[in-house]
Design a protein around this nucleic acid. Structure first.
Lengths: 234, 234
DNA sequence: CGCTACATTGAAATGTCTCAAAGGCCGTGG
DNA sequence: CCACGGCCTTTGAGACATTTCAATGTAGCG
Protein backbone atom coordinates (compact mmCIF):
# COMPACT_ATOMS: atom_id res chain seq x y z
CA UNK A 1 0.00 0.00 0.00
CA UNK A 2 1.60 3.26 -1.06
CA UNK A 3 1.60 6.33 1.10
CA UNK A 4 -0.49 8.10 -1.48
CA UNK A 5 -3.22 5.64 -0.84
CA UNK A 6 -3.21 6.28 2.89
CA UNK A 7 -2.68 9.98 3.25
CA UNK A 8 -4.15 13.06 1.66
CA UNK A 9 -1.69 14.92 -0.53
CA UNK A 10 -0.71 17.45 2.08
CA UNK A 11 0.70 14.82 4.42
CA UNK A 12 4.23 13.54 3.97
CA UNK A 13 6.74 11.79 6.24
CA UNK A 14 8.76 14.44 7.97
CA UNK A 15 12.35 14.74 6.84
CA UNK A 16 13.12 18.16 8.15
CA UNK A 17 13.20 18.39 11.90
CA UNK A 18 10.72 20.65 13.57
CA UNK A 19 11.05 18.46 16.62
CA UNK A 20 14.28 20.20 17.56
CA UNK A 21 12.45 23.54 17.49
CA UNK A 22 10.43 22.68 20.52
CA UNK A 23 11.56 23.57 24.04
CA UNK A 24 10.19 20.35 25.46
CA UNK A 25 12.62 18.32 23.37
CA UNK A 26 15.63 20.57 23.18
CA UNK A 27 17.45 18.99 26.10
CA UNK A 28 17.61 15.60 24.35
CA UNK A 29 20.62 13.99 22.68
CA UNK A 30 20.78 13.94 18.91
CA UNK A 31 20.06 10.21 18.75
CA UNK A 32 16.91 10.60 20.81
CA UNK A 33 15.76 13.49 18.66
CA UNK A 34 16.27 11.40 15.57
CA UNK A 35 14.32 8.58 17.14
CA UNK A 36 11.38 10.91 17.67
CA UNK A 37 11.80 12.60 14.32
CA UNK A 38 11.24 9.44 12.32
CA UNK A 39 7.83 8.98 13.89
CA UNK A 40 6.61 12.43 12.86
CA UNK A 41 4.66 13.47 9.83
CA UNK A 42 4.67 16.81 8.13
CA UNK A 43 1.32 18.34 7.17
CA UNK A 44 0.60 21.53 5.29
CA UNK A 45 -2.44 23.75 5.59
CA UNK A 46 -3.60 26.64 3.46
CA UNK A 47 -4.70 29.91 4.98
CA UNK A 48 -8.02 29.52 6.84
CA UNK A 49 -7.92 25.71 6.82
CA UNK A 50 -8.87 24.00 10.06
CA UNK A 51 -6.19 21.77 11.59
CA UNK A 52 -8.71 20.26 13.96
CA UNK A 53 -12.01 21.29 15.41
CA UNK A 54 -13.96 20.79 18.60
CA UNK A 55 -15.37 17.30 18.79
CA UNK A 56 -12.56 15.79 16.73
CA UNK A 57 -10.90 12.86 18.35
CA UNK A 58 -7.49 13.85 19.49
CA UNK A 59 -4.73 11.58 18.28
CA UNK A 60 -1.61 13.63 17.96
CA UNK A 61 0.57 16.41 19.16
CA UNK A 62 0.90 19.24 16.63
CA UNK A 63 4.09 21.27 16.45
CA UNK A 64 4.07 24.42 14.35
CA UNK A 65 6.93 24.36 11.89
CA UNK A 66 6.13 27.38 9.76
CA UNK A 67 3.15 29.72 9.79
CA UNK A 68 0.66 30.97 12.37
CA UNK A 69 -2.27 29.20 14.02
CA UNK A 70 -5.31 30.60 15.82
CA UNK A 71 -6.66 28.52 18.69
CA UNK A 72 -10.19 29.48 19.63
CA UNK A 73 -13.23 28.06 21.37
CA UNK A 74 -16.93 28.48 21.06
CA UNK A 75 -18.66 29.13 24.33
CA UNK A 76 -21.95 27.57 25.33
CA UNK A 77 -23.79 30.52 23.88
CA UNK A 78 -21.98 30.15 20.59
CA UNK A 79 -19.63 33.10 20.88
CA UNK A 80 -16.07 32.68 19.76
CA UNK A 81 -13.14 33.35 22.02
CA UNK A 82 -9.57 33.51 20.83
CA UNK A 83 -7.49 31.43 23.22
CA UNK A 84 -4.01 31.87 21.83
CA UNK A 85 -1.96 32.26 18.68
CA UNK A 86 0.74 29.74 17.91
CA UNK A 87 4.01 30.51 16.20
CA UNK A 88 6.77 28.19 14.97
CA UNK A 89 8.03 26.03 17.82
CA UNK A 90 4.73 26.19 19.72
CA UNK A 91 2.61 23.11 20.03
CA UNK A 92 -0.99 22.19 20.59
CA UNK A 93 -3.21 19.17 20.83
CA UNK A 94 -1.53 18.08 24.02
CA UNK A 95 -4.62 18.43 26.19
CA UNK A 96 -6.60 15.64 24.79
CA UNK A 97 -3.55 13.41 24.68
CA UNK A 98 -3.55 12.83 28.38
CA UNK A 99 -7.17 12.86 29.40
CA UNK A 100 -10.14 13.90 27.30
CA UNK A 101 -10.31 12.19 23.98
CA UNK A 102 -11.80 14.98 21.92
CA UNK A 103 -10.70 18.52 21.19
CA UNK A 104 -12.55 21.37 22.86
CA UNK A 105 -10.97 24.01 20.71
CA UNK A 106 -10.57 24.87 17.06
CA UNK A 107 -7.18 25.29 15.42
CA UNK A 108 -7.12 27.33 12.25
CA UNK A 109 -4.18 28.24 9.99
CA UNK A 110 -4.01 32.04 9.84
CA UNK A 111 -1.60 31.88 6.92
CA UNK A 112 -0.18 28.97 4.97
CA UNK A 113 1.20 26.70 7.66
CA UNK A 114 3.30 23.61 8.06
CA UNK A 115 3.06 21.47 11.14
CA UNK A 116 4.67 18.27 12.46
CA UNK A 117 2.45 15.62 13.90
CA UNK A 118 3.53 13.12 16.52
CA UNK A 119 1.16 10.30 17.15
CA UNK A 120 -0.29 9.95 20.63
CA UNK A 121 0.96 6.43 21.27
CA UNK A 122 4.44 7.21 19.96
CA UNK A 123 4.61 10.17 22.27
CA UNK A 124 3.46 8.19 25.28
CA UNK A 125 6.15 5.62 24.56
CA UNK A 126 8.77 8.35 24.55
CA UNK A 127 7.48 9.79 27.78
CA UNK A 128 7.87 6.47 29.54
CA UNK A 129 11.26 5.85 27.92
CA UNK A 130 12.64 9.33 28.59
CA UNK A 131 10.97 10.62 31.75
CA UNK A 132 12.76 13.93 31.51
CA UNK A 133 10.46 14.86 28.63
CA UNK A 134 7.53 14.57 30.99
CA UNK A 135 9.15 16.98 33.37
CA UNK A 136 9.54 19.44 30.50
CA UNK A 137 5.93 19.04 29.50
CA UNK A 138 4.87 19.40 33.11
CA UNK A 139 6.81 22.65 33.25
CA UNK A 140 5.13 23.82 30.07
CA UNK A 141 1.71 22.83 31.41
CA UNK A 142 2.43 24.64 34.63
CA UNK A 143 3.20 27.80 32.75
CA UNK A 144 0.14 27.54 30.61
CA UNK A 145 -2.06 26.80 33.58
CA UNK A 146 -0.56 29.71 35.40
CA UNK A 147 -1.21 31.94 32.41
CA UNK A 148 -4.74 30.68 32.01
CA UNK A 149 -5.63 31.18 35.65
CA UNK A 150 -4.13 34.62 35.62
CA UNK A 151 -6.20 35.42 32.55
CA UNK A 152 -9.30 34.03 34.20
CA UNK A 153 -8.65 36.10 37.25
CA UNK A 154 -8.29 39.24 35.15
CA UNK A 155 -11.57 38.59 33.42
CA UNK A 156 -13.15 38.10 36.80
CA UNK A 157 -11.79 41.19 38.46
CA UNK A 158 -10.59 43.77 35.94
CA UNK A 159 -12.52 46.13 33.73
CA UNK A 160 -11.84 46.17 30.01
CA UNK A 161 -9.51 49.14 30.19
CA UNK A 162 -7.32 47.42 32.77
CA UNK A 163 -7.30 44.19 30.79
CA UNK A 164 -6.06 46.06 27.76
CA UNK A 165 -3.44 47.90 29.79
CA UNK A 166 -2.18 44.68 31.35
CA UNK A 167 -2.12 43.02 27.97
CA UNK A 168 0.08 45.80 26.64
CA UNK A 169 2.40 45.42 29.62
CA UNK A 170 2.58 41.68 29.06
CA UNK A 171 3.57 41.91 25.44
CA UNK A 172 5.98 44.73 26.18
CA UNK A 173 7.73 42.45 28.66
CA UNK A 174 8.07 39.76 26.03
CA UNK A 175 9.83 42.12 23.63
CA UNK A 176 13.54 41.57 23.41
CA UNK A 177 15.57 43.68 23.40
CA UNK A 178 13.78 45.95 25.84
CA UNK A 179 11.91 48.72 24.11
CA UNK A 180 8.99 51.09 24.61
CA UNK A 181 7.14 50.16 21.46
CA UNK A 182 5.01 47.12 20.89
CA UNK A 183 3.50 45.63 17.77
CA UNK A 184 0.05 44.21 18.36
CA UNK A 185 0.34 40.51 17.53
CA UNK A 186 -3.18 40.36 16.12
CA UNK A 187 -5.96 42.47 14.68
CA UNK A 188 -8.04 44.55 17.07
CA UNK A 189 -10.96 42.34 16.21
CA UNK A 190 -9.01 39.32 17.43
CA UNK A 191 -7.73 41.27 20.39
CA UNK A 192 -11.32 42.02 21.33
CA UNK A 193 -12.13 38.33 21.19
CA UNK A 194 -9.03 37.49 23.20
CA UNK A 195 -9.83 40.05 25.88
CA UNK A 196 -13.51 39.25 26.04
CA UNK A 197 -14.86 42.50 24.64
CA UNK A 198 -15.86 44.08 21.32
CA UNK A 199 -13.80 45.83 18.64
CA UNK A 200 -15.71 49.05 19.32
CA UNK A 201 -14.76 49.03 22.97
CA UNK A 202 -11.15 48.21 22.16
CA UNK A 203 -11.02 51.17 19.84
CA UNK A 204 -12.50 53.53 22.40
CA UNK A 205 -10.32 52.33 25.23
CA UNK A 206 -7.16 52.73 23.21
CA UNK A 207 -8.22 56.32 22.67
CA UNK A 208 -8.84 56.79 26.37
CA UNK A 209 -5.43 55.39 27.22
CA UNK A 210 -3.93 57.81 24.74
CA UNK A 211 -5.94 60.74 26.15
CA UNK A 212 -4.58 59.90 29.57
CA UNK A 213 -1.06 60.08 28.18
CA UNK A 214 -0.27 56.45 28.89
CA UNK A 215 0.30 55.33 25.29
CA UNK A 216 0.63 56.76 21.82
CA UNK A 217 -0.91 55.02 18.83
CA UNK A 218 1.71 55.27 16.11
CA UNK A 219 -0.18 53.17 13.59
CA UNK A 220 -3.04 50.74 13.99
CA UNK A 221 -0.59 48.05 15.03
CA UNK A 222 2.28 50.02 16.59
CA UNK A 223 1.83 51.34 20.10
CA UNK A 224 4.32 53.39 22.02
CA UNK A 225 4.17 52.85 25.76
CA UNK A 226 4.60 56.20 27.44
CA UNK A 227 3.79 55.50 31.08
CA UNK A 228 4.29 51.89 32.08
CA UNK A 229 3.52 52.43 35.74
CA UNK A 230 0.41 54.32 34.81
CA UNK A 231 -0.80 51.37 32.77
CA UNK A 232 -0.41 49.08 35.75
CA UNK A 233 -2.63 51.35 37.83
CA UNK A 234 -5.46 51.71 35.31
CA UNK B 1 18.81 17.22 66.88
CA UNK B 2 15.24 16.36 67.77
CA UNK B 3 12.34 16.91 65.47
CA UNK B 4 10.86 19.35 67.92
CA UNK B 5 13.80 21.57 67.37
CA UNK B 6 13.34 21.64 63.62
CA UNK B 7 9.61 21.81 63.08
CA UNK B 8 6.84 23.90 64.50
CA UNK B 9 4.45 21.92 66.65
CA UNK B 10 1.89 21.37 63.93
CA UNK B 11 4.30 19.40 61.76
CA UNK B 12 4.88 15.71 62.36
CA UNK B 13 6.19 12.84 60.24
CA UNK B 14 3.27 11.31 58.46
CA UNK B 15 2.25 7.88 59.69
CA UNK B 16 -1.19 7.74 58.24
CA UNK B 17 -1.30 7.57 54.50
CA UNK B 18 -3.01 10.37 52.66
CA UNK B 19 -0.82 9.52 49.72
CA UNK B 20 -3.11 6.68 48.82
CA UNK B 21 -6.05 9.09 48.72
CA UNK B 22 -4.73 10.82 45.67
CA UNK B 23 -5.69 9.78 42.16
CA UNK B 24 -2.22 10.48 40.81
CA UNK B 25 -0.77 7.78 43.04
CA UNK B 26 -3.55 5.25 43.24
CA UNK B 27 -2.25 3.08 40.43
CA UNK B 28 0.97 2.31 42.30
CA UNK B 29 1.92 -0.88 44.14
CA UNK B 30 1.81 -0.93 47.90
CA UNK B 31 5.61 -0.94 48.21
CA UNK B 32 5.89 2.15 46.02
CA UNK B 33 3.20 3.91 48.02
CA UNK B 34 5.08 3.12 51.20
CA UNK B 35 8.25 4.44 49.68
CA UNK B 36 6.55 7.74 49.00
CA UNK B 37 4.71 7.77 52.28
CA UNK B 38 7.87 7.78 54.39
CA UNK B 39 9.01 10.99 52.72
CA UNK B 40 5.83 12.88 53.59
CA UNK B 41 5.07 15.10 56.53
CA UNK B 42 1.74 15.79 58.07
CA UNK B 43 0.85 19.38 58.87
CA UNK B 44 -2.22 20.77 60.60
CA UNK B 45 -3.81 24.15 60.11
CA UNK B 46 -6.48 25.90 62.09
CA UNK B 47 -9.45 27.53 60.40
CA UNK B 48 -8.38 30.66 58.49
CA UNK B 49 -4.67 29.84 58.66
CA UNK B 50 -2.69 30.36 55.46
CA UNK B 51 -0.95 27.27 54.11
CA UNK B 52 1.07 29.39 51.72
CA UNK B 53 0.70 32.75 50.15
CA UNK B 54 1.67 34.49 46.93
CA UNK B 55 5.37 35.20 46.85
CA UNK B 56 6.25 32.22 49.04
CA UNK B 57 8.87 30.00 47.61
CA UNK B 58 7.30 26.79 46.53
CA UNK B 59 8.98 23.72 47.89
CA UNK B 60 6.38 21.03 48.22
CA UNK B 61 3.27 19.38 46.96
CA UNK B 62 0.35 19.66 49.38
CA UNK B 63 -2.25 16.93 49.56
CA UNK B 64 -5.43 17.60 51.52
CA UNK B 65 -5.97 14.88 54.06
CA UNK B 66 -8.84 16.30 56.03
CA UNK B 67 -10.61 19.63 55.85
CA UNK B 68 -11.26 22.24 53.15
CA UNK B 69 -8.93 24.71 51.50
CA UNK B 70 -9.66 27.91 49.58
CA UNK B 71 -7.28 28.76 46.74
CA UNK B 72 -7.52 32.36 45.68
CA UNK B 73 -5.52 35.03 43.89
CA UNK B 74 -5.25 38.74 44.08
CA UNK B 75 -5.47 40.47 40.73
CA UNK B 76 -3.31 43.38 39.69
CA UNK B 77 -5.91 45.78 41.01
CA UNK B 78 -5.97 44.02 44.36
CA UNK B 79 -9.31 42.27 44.03
CA UNK B 80 -9.60 38.73 45.26
CA UNK B 81 -10.74 35.90 43.06
CA UNK B 82 -11.57 32.47 44.34
CA UNK B 83 -9.85 29.95 42.09
CA UNK B 84 -10.97 26.66 43.56
CA UNK B 85 -11.84 24.84 46.73
CA UNK B 86 -9.89 21.74 47.69
CA UNK B 87 -11.35 18.72 49.46
CA UNK B 88 -9.62 15.63 50.84
CA UNK B 89 -7.62 13.88 48.11
CA UNK B 90 -7.11 17.11 46.12
CA UNK B 91 -3.67 18.58 45.88
CA UNK B 92 -2.07 21.95 45.28
CA UNK B 93 1.32 23.58 45.12
CA UNK B 94 2.19 21.64 42.00
CA UNK B 95 2.47 24.66 39.74
CA UNK B 96 5.53 26.16 41.17
CA UNK B 97 7.17 22.76 41.46
CA UNK B 98 7.83 22.47 37.78
CA UNK B 99 8.51 26.00 36.66
CA UNK B 100 7.99 29.17 38.63
CA UNK B 101 9.62 29.14 41.99
CA UNK B 102 7.08 31.17 43.92
CA UNK B 103 3.36 30.77 44.53
CA UNK B 104 0.99 33.08 42.70
CA UNK B 105 -1.98 32.08 44.77
CA UNK B 106 -3.03 31.97 48.41
CA UNK B 107 -4.11 28.76 50.12
CA UNK B 108 -6.24 29.19 53.22
CA UNK B 109 -7.74 26.56 55.49
CA UNK B 110 -11.53 27.10 55.51
CA UNK B 111 -11.91 24.79 58.50
CA UNK B 112 -9.40 22.90 60.60
CA UNK B 113 -7.34 21.06 58.04
CA UNK B 114 -4.67 18.42 57.82
CA UNK B 115 -2.42 18.14 54.81
CA UNK B 116 0.46 15.92 53.70
CA UNK B 117 3.53 17.57 52.30
CA UNK B 118 5.86 15.94 49.82
CA UNK B 119 9.10 17.71 49.24
CA UNK B 120 9.81 18.96 45.76
CA UNK B 121 13.05 17.05 45.31
CA UNK B 122 11.57 13.83 46.67
CA UNK B 123 8.71 14.15 44.24
CA UNK B 124 10.97 14.80 41.28
CA UNK B 125 12.94 11.69 42.18
CA UNK B 126 9.77 9.64 42.15
CA UNK B 127 8.69 11.09 38.82
CA UNK B 128 11.93 10.01 37.19
CA UNK B 129 11.83 6.64 38.92
CA UNK B 130 8.15 5.92 38.16
CA UNK B 131 7.32 7.69 34.91
CA UNK B 132 3.71 6.59 35.09
CA UNK B 133 3.16 9.11 37.88
CA UNK B 134 4.09 11.86 35.47
CA UNK B 135 1.47 10.65 33.04
CA UNK B 136 -1.11 10.83 35.82
CA UNK B 137 -0.06 14.32 36.74
CA UNK B 138 -0.10 15.31 33.09
CA UNK B 139 -3.65 14.02 32.86
CA UNK B 140 -4.58 16.01 35.95
CA UNK B 141 -2.92 19.13 34.54
CA UNK B 142 -4.74 18.64 31.26
CA UNK B 143 -8.04 18.54 33.06
CA UNK B 144 -7.26 21.58 35.10
CA UNK B 145 -6.04 23.49 32.10
CA UNK B 146 -9.13 22.48 30.22
CA UNK B 147 -11.29 23.65 33.10
CA UNK B 148 -9.41 26.89 33.45
CA UNK B 149 -9.63 27.71 29.76
CA UNK B 150 -13.30 26.89 29.72
CA UNK B 151 -13.79 29.17 32.69
CA UNK B 152 -11.80 31.91 30.98
CA UNK B 153 -13.88 31.54 27.90
CA UNK B 154 -17.08 31.84 29.90
CA UNK B 155 -15.88 35.00 31.55
CA UNK B 156 -15.01 36.34 28.14
CA UNK B 157 -18.27 35.53 26.43
CA UNK B 158 -21.11 34.89 28.88
CA UNK B 159 -23.12 37.29 30.99
CA UNK B 160 -23.38 36.76 34.71
CA UNK B 161 -26.73 35.00 34.51
CA UNK B 162 -25.37 32.44 32.03
CA UNK B 163 -22.24 31.90 34.12
CA UNK B 164 -24.40 31.11 37.12
CA UNK B 165 -26.64 28.83 35.11
CA UNK B 166 -23.66 26.95 33.69
CA UNK B 167 -22.13 26.69 37.12
CA UNK B 168 -25.30 25.07 38.43
CA UNK B 169 -25.30 22.64 35.53
CA UNK B 170 -21.66 21.79 36.19
CA UNK B 171 -22.16 20.97 39.83
CA UNK B 172 -25.36 19.10 39.07
CA UNK B 173 -23.38 16.88 36.70
CA UNK B 174 -20.87 16.13 39.42
CA UNK B 175 -23.57 14.92 41.80
CA UNK B 176 -23.73 11.17 42.16
CA UNK B 177 -26.17 9.58 42.13
CA UNK B 178 -28.01 11.69 39.58
CA UNK B 179 -30.42 14.08 41.18
CA UNK B 180 -32.17 17.37 40.55
CA UNK B 181 -30.99 19.11 43.66
CA UNK B 182 -27.64 20.67 44.25
CA UNK B 183 -25.95 21.96 47.36
CA UNK B 184 -23.92 25.06 46.74
CA UNK B 185 -20.35 24.13 47.67
CA UNK B 186 -19.59 27.60 48.99
CA UNK B 187 -21.17 30.75 50.32
CA UNK B 188 -22.77 33.11 47.83
CA UNK B 189 -20.09 35.60 48.67
CA UNK B 190 -17.45 33.09 47.58
CA UNK B 191 -19.54 32.11 44.59
CA UNK B 192 -19.59 35.74 43.53
CA UNK B 193 -15.82 35.86 43.76
CA UNK B 194 -15.53 32.60 41.86
CA UNK B 195 -17.81 33.78 39.07
CA UNK B 196 -16.36 37.25 38.84
CA UNK B 197 -19.32 39.21 40.10
CA UNK B 198 -20.78 40.61 43.32
CA UNK B 199 -22.92 38.98 46.02
CA UNK B 200 -25.73 41.42 45.20
CA UNK B 201 -25.82 40.36 41.58
CA UNK B 202 -25.69 36.70 42.54
CA UNK B 203 -28.66 37.21 44.78
CA UNK B 204 -30.67 39.00 42.11
CA UNK B 205 -29.81 36.53 39.36
CA UNK B 206 -30.84 33.57 41.48
CA UNK B 207 -34.17 35.28 41.89
CA UNK B 208 -34.47 35.87 38.16
CA UNK B 209 -33.69 32.23 37.45
CA UNK B 210 -36.40 31.29 39.90
CA UNK B 211 -38.86 33.77 38.36
CA UNK B 212 -38.22 32.17 34.99
CA UNK B 213 -39.08 28.81 36.48
CA UNK B 214 -35.65 27.32 35.89
CA UNK B 215 -34.72 26.67 39.50
CA UNK B 216 -36.25 26.72 42.95
CA UNK B 217 -34.32 28.00 45.95
CA UNK B 218 -35.13 25.57 48.73
CA UNK B 219 -32.77 27.10 51.25
CA UNK B 220 -29.84 29.46 50.83
CA UNK B 221 -27.63 26.51 49.95
CA UNK B 222 -30.07 24.02 48.40
CA UNK B 223 -31.19 24.59 44.84
CA UNK B 224 -33.65 22.46 42.94
CA UNK B 225 -33.01 22.39 39.20
CA UNK B 226 -36.35 22.53 37.44
CA UNK B 227 -35.42 23.08 33.81
CA UNK B 228 -31.95 21.90 32.93
CA UNK B 229 -32.25 22.64 29.21
CA UNK B 230 -33.57 26.06 30.02
CA UNK B 231 -30.49 26.77 32.11
CA UNK B 232 -28.25 25.89 29.22
CA UNK B 233 -30.00 28.42 27.02
CA UNK B 234 -29.92 31.33 29.46
C1' DC C 1 -28.91 34.65 73.21
C1' DG C 2 -26.41 37.83 70.89
C1' DC C 3 -22.75 38.92 67.77
C1' DT C 4 -20.83 38.81 63.33
C1' DA C 5 -20.65 37.84 58.86
C1' DC C 6 -23.49 36.74 55.19
C1' DA C 7 -27.57 37.66 52.29
C1' DT C 8 -31.06 40.44 50.27
C1' DT C 9 -33.36 44.64 48.39
C1' DG C 10 -33.59 49.23 46.39
C1' DA C 11 -32.02 53.11 43.71
C1' DA C 12 -28.58 55.57 41.36
C1' DA C 13 -24.24 55.56 38.80
C1' DT C 14 -21.28 53.49 35.62
C1' DG C 15 -19.33 50.47 32.19
C1' DT C 16 -19.99 48.04 28.16
C1' DC C 17 -22.56 46.42 24.30
C1' DT C 18 -25.39 47.06 20.29
C1' DC C 19 -26.67 48.93 16.13
C1' DA C 20 -25.85 51.95 12.43
C1' DA C 21 -22.92 54.49 9.52
C1' DA C 22 -18.61 56.22 7.70
C1' DG C 23 -13.63 55.91 7.02
C1' DG C 24 -9.34 53.45 5.93
C1' DC C 25 -6.28 49.68 4.85
C1' DC C 26 -4.95 45.67 2.07
C1' DG C 27 -4.82 42.24 -1.33
C1' DT C 28 -6.82 40.92 -5.76
C1' DG C 29 -7.63 41.22 -10.32
C1' DG C 30 -7.72 44.02 -14.15
C1' DC D 1 0.33 50.03 -11.13
C1' DC D 2 -4.10 51.40 -10.04
C1' DA D 3 -8.86 50.67 -8.94
C1' DC D 4 -12.04 47.96 -6.60
C1' DG D 5 -14.22 45.34 -3.04
C1' DG D 6 -14.14 43.53 1.31
C1' DC D 7 -13.04 43.59 5.84
C1' DC D 8 -11.29 45.83 9.70
C1' DT D 9 -11.60 50.01 12.36
C1' DT D 10 -13.55 54.04 14.17
C1' DT D 11 -17.31 57.13 15.92
C1' DG D 12 -21.83 58.22 17.76
C1' DA D 13 -26.04 57.52 20.27
C1' DG D 14 -29.03 54.78 22.78
C1' DA D 15 -30.03 50.48 25.36
C1' DC D 16 -28.76 47.36 28.65
C1' DA D 17 -26.26 44.79 32.33
C1' DT D 18 -23.82 45.15 36.31
C1' DT D 19 -21.70 47.57 40.10
C1' DT D 20 -21.88 50.50 43.90
C1' DC D 21 -23.58 52.27 48.09
C1' DA D 22 -26.72 52.16 51.74
C1' DA D 23 -29.94 49.92 54.57
C1' DT D 24 -32.34 45.94 56.36
C1' DG D 25 -33.03 41.13 57.07
C1' DT D 26 -31.17 36.58 58.36
C1' DA D 27 -28.44 32.50 59.69
C1' DG D 28 -24.92 30.23 62.17
C1' DC D 29 -21.55 30.01 65.85
C1' DG D 30 -19.65 30.69 70.21
Amino acid sequence: MSKDAIYPKNVVPSHTSCVSLVPIFNHLEKEQLDEIKVTTQSVSYKKQELIYHAGDESTSLYIIHKGKVRIYRLSESGKEQLVRILNPGDFTGEMALFSESTHETYAEAMIDTKICRIDRSDLQDFLLKYPSISLKILAEFSNRLEASEKQSSRFATEKVEARIALFLVDILNEELPKTTEVTLPMSKKDLASYLGTTPETISRKFNELEDKGLIKQLTHKQIKIIDLDGLLLV
